[in-house]
């Protein structure tokens, strides 16, 4: 499972970085979204990967998952969702004001 998660994070970061460096603001938004998935997975993994381990104990439990990264990742998801929504709105306004969705405004340099 560790290999799968770490490989997944790696692929997400690679794809996100590539998209982030594109010239259209839509790709940039997608890239940031993929990068935020990678960061969230990374936080989740920082509490160690464990199956069948409850984060809160109500009765008997053999092993426990660390509840804190789960709380942290929820916060991080909410924040990245909010900021991404703002970025989409700003990119839409930029394309309305400058007449193109190039990250430098307008159609960019040919």
């Amino acid at each position: 499972m560790e290999l799968l998660v770490s490989a997944g994070i790696g692929v997400l970061v690679a794809a996100g970085t590539w998209l982030l460096l594109r010239e259209r603001s839509f790709s940039v938004v997608l890239g940031l979204t993929l990068l935020s998935y990678a960061a969230n997975l990374m936080i989740f993994a920082s509490g160690r990967l464990a199956a069948d381990a409850p984060p809160l104990v109500l009765g008997e439990a053999e092993r426990l998952a660390d509840p804190l990264p789960q709380a942290l990742v929820l916060t991080a998801i909410v924040i990245s969702f909010g900021t991404t929504a703002f970025l989409v709105a700003l990119a839409l306004r930029a394309s309305a004001e400058t007449g193109g969705d190039h990250v430098d405004g307008g159609e960019g340099e040919r």
Binding site: V28, L32, A39, S46, P69, A76, I79, T83, F86
Partner: peptide, 24 residues
């Protein structure tokens, strides 16, 4: 708006790096 877009994208990317650092 153009300066704002750059500012927001760069700061979002920095925030994600911050998150990765915190996770490590």
């Amino acid at each position: 708006v153009r300066a704002g877009l750059h500012y927001v994208v760069l700061n979002l990317a920095a925030s994600l790096v911050f998150l990765v650092g915190l996770a490590l």
